[in-house]
């Protein structure tokens, strides 16, 4: 039984990114601009999160140039899809198949993303060794990994 929550995905913003990209058919990519619009994130925040996912091999990014216009697209890799599958299975295991309100949450996506959450009752997961990304600090800027946003 998988009970480890992937700390790389178990951060609200990155979970939303991975879930959004996973809704596309395998092999399709999404422009940085569309992703940013869908998630209502600032370009800087999105780049930071995408870099982490790209470092782990969960997403791939491609930069194309058409005349003066630059376009950056991102796609979930096979490894990223597998990681999301494992993460989802771990959630199921942790929640123990009980009705936890996962499909009718007390908090909306935006509230959770913004940190405006309230504690929920329900089965507490077992103590484990898998720590989430502590406070999810932003890494220093590194050039060359994910191209900057282009519209």
């Amino acid at each position: 039984m998988t009970t480890e929550l992937d700390p790389l995905i178990h951060v609200p913003t990155r979970l939303k990114i991975v879930a959004t990209l996973a809704a596309l058919p395998d092999g399709d990519a999404l422009s940085f601009t569309r992703l940013q619009d869908m998630l209502a994130l600032t370009p800087g925040n999105l780049i930071i999160q995408l870099r982490k996912l790209e470092d782990a091999g969960y997403i791939s990014s491609t930069k194309t140039r058409n005349g003066s216009a630059r376009k950056t697209t991102v796609a979930l890799t096979g490894q990223g899809r597998a990681a999301l599958r494992d993460y989802t299975q771990a959630l199921r295991d942790l929640l123990g198949g009980l009705d936890t309100g996962a499909t009718s949450p007390d908090n909306t996506v935006d509230e959770i993303s913004a940190g405006n959450t309230k504690p929920k009752r329900g089965p507490r997961p077992r103590p484990g060794r898998n720590h989430p990304d502590p406070a999810d600090p932003a890494p220093p800027e590194r050039p060359g990994l994910l191209p900057g946003p282009a519209r």
Binding site: L15, T103, D106, P132
Partner: peptide
Amino acid sequence: HIPGTARDGFDPGQAAALL
């Protein structure tokens, strides 16, 4: 430490809802 909980207040139930 409870996986997926604690410091950022993002527990598995909320993660499932967000997902």
